[in-house]
Amino acid sequence: MSRISACFQQLDEANKVALIPFVTAGDPSRDITVPLMHQMVEAGANMIELGVPFSDPMADGPTIQRASERALQNNISIHDVLAMVQEFRQQDSTTPVILMGYLNPIEVMGYQEFADAAATAGVDGVLTVDMPPEEAQGLLDALKPHEIDPILLLAPTSTEDRIKSVSEVANGFIYYVSMKGITGGSNIVLSEVSAKVAEIRRSTRLPIGIGFGIKDPESAQTMAQVGDAVIVGSVLVNIIESLIDTPDKIGDEITRLLGSMRQAMDLI
């Protein structure tokens, strides 16, 4: 069983919902990322989504684009991101790590080389935003022997046919994009999310994570009533951005927010 599936099973038994924070690797500096990953786990994160910086993050809002730009200014490559995961694994062998980014850095590295290196580093899942199942076969074939889960997206616009075709190839969990829009958006509507997630559950037994637009303990708690995981990104990146001049405070501020989200989610 993959680390991601094991994690969901454990949470399910404890009747808990997964909290998955996202940060971009190397933002705002190369050295901050691995310690921050450990701190987030301590604060109650069950898995980590680590952003692989890309020059043209089309599906992201300005917050995460700026995070990518800061990381690229630090010359963070996909090889550096894998090295960070490997370093994280030296102290944490259980928390799943999911790489999130765009296809081109993986495409240029080569699917096979990437899959081998990701497995060696201890990566558990790969989410490439701009790779729908129709174009995914090559990467899926490379990831499969390593038991790295391909995490795929579903969205409010996904039809029943698309839900089925995504469910067929996804593994680990399905990432439900809560709204029509980009990361950091703000028009999340509970009733719509709830209806769509119910529809998705008719086609898959995979856990469903909900992301986009979750920014405080209240919205985390609300989405925890619907999904099996809550994914939090832009609000954390905003904290990083606001503390660029005092990076020592980043860990504490992020820990505080994640802690309060964890608490709120555990109340349901």
């Binding site: 089309m58 790779m131 174009e135 997206l153 579903l154 969205a155 409010p156 616009t157 996904s158 994009v177």
Partner: peptide, 20 residues
């Protein structure tokens, strides 16, 4: 029918845009 010219072209977008 998927928009491929040999290995090129295709549809590499986020899921939200697939149905539109």
């Amino acid at each position: 029918s998927y928009g491929h010219f040999g290995p090129y072209g295709g549809v590499f977008v986020a899921e939200t845009l697939m149905e539109p």
